[in-house]
Design a protein around this nucleic acid. Structure first.
Length: 639
RNA sequence: GCCGGGAUAGCUCAGCUGGUAGAGCAACCGCCUUGUAAGCGGUAGGCCAGGGGUUCGAGUCCCCUUCCCGGCUCCA
């Protein structure tokens, strides 16, 4: 038999040869370094027989797949150690993930695991790694595997096998054994456990079996593994550095916002944070205005009647703050759409005026589960840069595409690299399937017309329509939704929205919900982490600070401050009797873009000595020139 | 909401197996009058998250509540 190597050369092998044989045929060094093979692009064990005519690639520590492989190995080694240290543990699944691996366990009653238990588990793992236990694959009939895991009292494995039989009709399953530990596993694995030299357990967490909140809560142990101790150390260091960018820490240090027990999940914005917030509101107003949106303002609290019309009372009430006044049931708005629909319906509309685009930086309240709150990234009180477009059928595609383009144009200002998701009809929904077919089709067409890549999240849409979401990851790799474009034929029906057509008849408009930043709160949280608190000039709450060298320069500096402020520069004057070194240090720590030192020379010449954050003294410039520079940078929203 | 872990001065954190709370920074008051990342001295500051219990005695042990952290489910 023969196989083809990545460089195109062909290799002649005995029939039944394995990946290991192939590696050995190429060279002894490669044979030693080989961890697995890729056969026609699929990762396989080194010990698996190769099919004739395969495209073959030897996977070594240098291959991109190597980390995935050894993290999977590490998960098995961890399960092995946990099973030994905690007899009676039930094992479920343990896959490699981005940056590491985890394994989900069910511990016996009364046993809880905490990070304090990690050293003992890690020690046991290290012993198994040192022993270089081979990973041995065995393909066994389903009946035998079931019998085995039933005998071992491993109900999760039994369930997994039963589901494989039911859903995929499998007749055999593969088991992997390392040392005394055997796991149901698709594989592949490295030849032995010895490649798992550099690993670390990181955290324990709860996780529902099969991600189902109605099922058992398992104990998930997260860890990571690398091919070398150096790589592991570097990774742990990166995590430490990421913590320094955490928006919750920077938000407090930079005096942007606070949280308090008296209002969980709702931010208190300090003056500087509010300035930042308002810059973004101004940006969105400008962008919206350029694209034909008109701003509206709608109420906070509505009679439950409105929420019954929209469907929120049925499908969304769990997430709403409900209250009572004058014997009426009222609720704070969790979304702006019903208010906007109601507003649209209050006046007749002609086909000539469509599309109607109502924008509103709308304050929303959502009663989010307590365990999900997370700094500014998940709150109960937030402002959405929301808009609703009411349009004719023939305008839908252009409008959806326009929203997508606005989103990309906006993210480009910040250098955000977003990922797209298309979410389709959920189980909890209003409207018939025909409307959903249409709505999902429009969104797909819009994405395809711009040749945009996206992943599909089946069943993840809003209860009134499918949506395109824009996602961004935070400093430690968690993904958060920013903007959204949602197609909706349901609300126009429920609110009986109409416009008068050229035929003088009433017609139903289509509706598009869209937010670009998503919420200002979440966006600012991500912005803080993105810039590590070093905001560009246009966003910086304080753009410059004047630093008079000594008390005798304070008056001149104060006059300069007022002059700059009059030209729109957000400026402070730090004339405390502290050393200039101290005041520069503090301004640097506050990450202020500009420090303006004023001494004898500057007072004399009407100049300031400009120091840019992070890059030192840039020399003196006339005060007016500095003001012009800041004005330019602010207007351009650059730098 | 669920699982696990936390909560000590404004901030970051000490406080061994129970014996009536400590540091650095910040703050405040002086002095210094300063040329590009910490000048010097002094003062004040805590119902140890809240509530119950065990104990002669609780920041320390137990229970409950609240909030926070890491995940899961859910979501902008």
């Amino acid at each position: 038999m023969r196989v083809t190597l990545p460089d195109g050369t062909e290799l002649e092998l005995d029939d039944g040869a394995t990946g290991a044989d192939a590696a050995a045929a190429i060279g002894a060094g490669l044979a030693r370094a080989a961890l697995a093979v890729k056969v026609d692009g699929v990762l396989r064990d080194l010990s698996a027989p190769l099919p004739d005519g395969a495209r073959l690639e030897i996977v070594t520590a240098r291959s991109p797949e190597a980390l995935w492989l050894i993290r999977h190995d590490a998960a098995h080694v961890m399960a092995e150690a946990v099973l030994e240290l905690y007899p009676g543990v039930k094992i479920s699944i343990g896959p490699p993930i981005e940056d590491g691996f985890y394994y989900d366990f069910e511990f016996p009653d009364g046993v809880t695991l905490s990070e304090a238990d990690f050293p003992a588990i890690e020690r046991r793992m290290a012993e198994h790694v040192k022993a270089a236990e081979p990973f041995e694959r065995e393909d066994v009939p389903v009946a035998e595997a079931l019998e085995r895991f039933r005998a071992e009292d491993q109900p999760y494995k039994v369930e997994l096998i039963e589901d494989l039989v039911r859903d995929q009709g499998v007749e055999t399953v593969s088991l992997y054994r390392n040392g005394p530990f055997t796991d149901l596993c698709r594989g592949p694995h490295a030849p032995t456990t010895k490649t798992v030299k550099a690993f670390k357990l990181q955290s324990v967490a709860g996780a529902y079996w099969r991600g189902d909140a109605d099922r058992t809560m398992l104990t998930r142990v997260y860890g990571t593994a690398f091919l070398s101790k150096e790589d592991l150390e570097a990774h742990l260091e990166r995590l430490e550095e990421a913590k320094a960018r955490d928006h919750r820490k920077l938000g407090r240090e930079l005096g942007l916002f606070e949280f308090s027990e008296v209002s969980p999940g709702m931010a208190f914005w300090l003056p500087r944070g509010t300035t930042l917030f308002n810059q973004l509101v101004a940006l969105m107003r400008e962008l919206n205005e350029d694209r034909g949106y008109t701003e509206v303002k709608t109420p906070q609290v509505y009679d439950s009647r409105l929420w019954k019309t929209s469907g929120h009372w049925d499908k969304y009430r769990e997430n709403m703050f409900v209250t009572e006044a004058e014997d009426r049931q009222m609720a704070l708005k969790p979304m702006n759409c019903p208010g906007h629909c109601h507003l649209y319906a209050m006046h007749p509309h002609s086909y000539r005026e469509l599309p109607v685009r109502y924008a509103e930086p709308g304050l929303l309240h959502r009663y989010e589960p307590s365990g999900t709150l997370h700094g500014l990234l998940r709150v109960r009180h937030f402002v959405q840069d929301d808009a609703h477009i009411f349009c004719r059928d023939d305008q839908i595609l252009d409008e959806v595409v326009g929203c997508i383009e606005l989103a990309f144009a906006t993210y480009a200002i910040f250098g955000f690299d977003v990922k797209l998701e298309l979410s389709t009809r959920p189980e909890q929904r209003v409207g018939d399937d025909e409307l959903w077919d249409r709505a999902e089709g429009v969104l797909r067409d819009a994405l395809d017309s711009r040749e945009l890549g996206y992943v599909v999240n089946e069943g993840d849409g809003a209860f009134y329509g499918p949506k395109i979401d824009f996602h961004l990851t935070d400093s430690i790799g968690r993904s958060w939704q920013l903007g959204t474009v949602q197609m909706d034929f349901n609300f126009p029906e429920r609110f009986e929205l109409e416009y008068q057509g050229a035929d003088n008849q009433g017609h139903r408009p289509a509706m598009i919900h869209r937010a670009i930043l998503g919420s200002f709160e979440r966006f600012i949280g991500l912005l803080i982490e993105h810039y590590a608190g070093e905001f560009p000039v246009w966003l910086a709450p304080v753009q410059a600070v004047l630093l008079p060298i000594s008390d005798r320069h304070a008056e001149a500096a104060t006059v300069m401050r007022d002059a700059l402020a009059a030209k729109g520069v957000r400026v402070e004057c730090d004339d405390r009797s502290e050393s200039i070194g101290r005041r520069i240090r503090e301004a640097e720590l506050r990450k202020l873009p500009y420090m303006l030192v004023v001494g004898d020379r500057e007072v004399e010449d009407g100049t300031v000595a400009v120091r840019r954050h992070g890059s030192g003294d840039e020399g003196s410039v006339p005060l007016d020139a500095f003001a012009a520079r800041v004005a330019d940078e602010t207007a351009a929203r650059s730098a």
